[in-house]
Design a protein around this nucleic acid. Structure first.
Lengths: 333, 333
DNA sequence: CTAGACCGTGTAATCGATTCCAGTGCACGA
DNA sequence: TCGTGCACTGGAATCGATTACACGGTCTAG
């Protein structure tokens, strides 16, 4: 590879001058500038980002640790983060933790070693030993989607309480007596909160969830299927299932259909998270939609503000109910 | 941040010794080794990967440039690449080109600047000016899914000819007289090949595709919808639509249903690429499934072999037809 | 006519690691 | 007892950039 020294000697100047031209300093003459640029062009020189970063202690990069890349919810977020980052001259290193806490820790360490300028993490679980290490280095950190207990850093999250209350009301209005919940892991903030908020909304409507009708999954397809099988096998089985994540919802739908039950005829289904193709499912799914693109953008902006030592903007995002009929008609009672 | 020098003085040794301990050299005594490790532990030292890479000219990283992250086909590939890379001690920097050639070039340059050890690219289009720059640096390069004219580097691709022939036979067998094709861009290898292979398969069966029944999209949802609208608006409209990519297929399905047509009653639909939730669509889609995980793994392995200066393994992957009824029954005539 | 300001450029230190080469201390054989 | 070899360790150069500081030259003001 050609280095700055090559360019310098080729243009008959010192490396300092080449550097100044490259970084847009005021100093160099139009004439030297032209000579240097010509040399760069001619040699096909490209600066070594490693050397530059070593010297400047800035990599113009941040790390994004997500819990599951094939979950389209996270894929959309990742894309939004990446776009916003690019718009600000940052590059994103994407790490996929596959919902595993250890892997997440490993990745965070790797990213620290690479001296990223900031870290964006969707915590896999509450168990965040990695966080101490990050805090110790003073690296800007933003949590995304999920929080962890005792975290004192910005968290970009979506308020789903209202949407869950709307869903509860809709289900009750449609005459559902017993609602089964396929909840997320109780060691994730979203897992706990969605269950709690939905549970209290139903309780307020006089239809508290029966403890037997709550099954915890792990936010993945298979666990949704298993949960649905378990719930639909109960003697007093639910008349509707609510899955607190899109993959578990699909697993549940698959299972329910495998059991030969019709939706919403035999059982209603609603799902947390929306996808563009959900209207094309059989039946089109009633969902709680989260503003994924805004989440990603907001998170990236927040991190960039932190890096620039500015006050991060305070964003408030809310989810909303989108009814598509997979829970039956209101008033079918 | 604590550096190697800190560790060295804390342990009462030189940086050379610390480095040797860190890199598992044979030299240091058990006793010095222990002292150094203790110092590392105590200071919470983590090596600076930038400095290390600058010195060793290896980053243990490779770049993956994909054309669209929200396309689940690519998301799955990305995940497989990442897993295989991790298993070999590599880290992946993911760049999302959003099907734009310029953006792709920009990203390739950035990755070169960061001195990745190898590059994995799903070319957005045939226009690959970026490729000369990569070849000029001698960086190991592997193309994924799509090829470009004149590329002399390994290409991991899937042979879909057999599956397309099977699909053609199935459609003809089901009595379809006129098959409409929603093809990919003609400046992508997959766009051209799939169309050509499918076209000749149909021609051999005595049902050549009418030129008017071929519409080119851009591998994205919206273009599939537009293509379907155009095809279904023809006076002599197709009895079946085949979309050469999953997003265009979903767009087509959406459009067809928006037109009030039933599938497969009024028109059959088949799609290139499978997804776990395709069986849950209305109707379940007949597809040509590609082995995405194997593609990703193979690509990563191939690149790692190139980096190690070994002969890359020769993999041959084939797609296969999965019938689910969205094209009607065989023999419905 | 000269002192001082100012401008453009070069010299050299620096970032944090790796690694060649040389030096030290010890054991061994002669 | 002394030279030789071996095993560890340290000094210092190096990777490719950035940047503080110094230096020589031109211009202006007194």
């Amino acid at each position: 590879m050609t280095t700055m020294k090559d360019v310098a000697s080729h243009a008959g100047v010192s490396t300092a001058t080449v550097s100044r031209v490259l970084n847009g300093h005021a100093a160099p003459t139009q004439e030297t500038r032209a000579r240097v640029l010509a040399a760069i062009e001619e040699l096909g020189y490209r600066p070594n980002a490693l050397a530059r970063s070593l010297r400047t202690t800035a990599t113009k990069t941040f790390g994004l640790v997500i819990s599951d890349l094939v979950n389209p919810f996270f894929a959309e977020i990742a894309r939004a983060v990446e776009q916003e980052a690019r718009a600000h001259g940052y590059c994103v290193v994407l790490a996929n933790a596959d919902e595993s806490a250890e892997q997440q820790t490993t990745y965070v360490r790797t990213l620290l070693d690479r001296r990223v300028d900031g870290l964006l993490v969707c915590p896999a679980t509450d168990d965040a030993e990695w966080m101490d290490e990050v805090v110790a280095t003073g690296l800007p950190l933003v949590l995304l989607d999920r929080s962890v207990p005792g975290a004192d850093c910005p968290v970009i999250r979506v308020d789903g309480a209202g949407a869950l209350a709307d869903l509860a009301a809709s289900l009750v209005g449609a005459g559902h007596e017993r609602v089964g919940v396929i909840a997320g892991p109780s060691d994730t903030s979203t897992g706990r909160e969605r269950l709690a908020q939905f549970g209290s909304a139903l309780a307020e409507l006089g239809r508290p969830v029966h403890p037997e009708h709550v099954v915890h999954g792990d936010f993945r397809w298979e666990s949704g299927a298993q949960a649905a099988a378990k719930l639909m096998g109960l003697p007093d089985r639910p008349t509707a299932l609510v899955a607190m994540d899109n993959l578990m919802g699909l697993g549940a739908l698959e299972q329910v259909r495998a059991l030969g039950l019709s939706v919403p005829g035999d059982v209603g289904i609603a799902v947390y998270d929306d996808q563009p193709w959900f209207p094309l499912l059989d039946p089109p799914l009633t969902v709680i939609a989260q503003p994924t693109v805004e989440m990603g953008r907001a998170a990236a902006r927040c991190l960039i503000a932190l890096i620039a030592d500015e006050q991060p903007p305070d964003v408030r995002l809310t989810a909303r109910l989108v009814e598509r009929g997979s829970c039956g008609e209101a008033g079918r009672g």
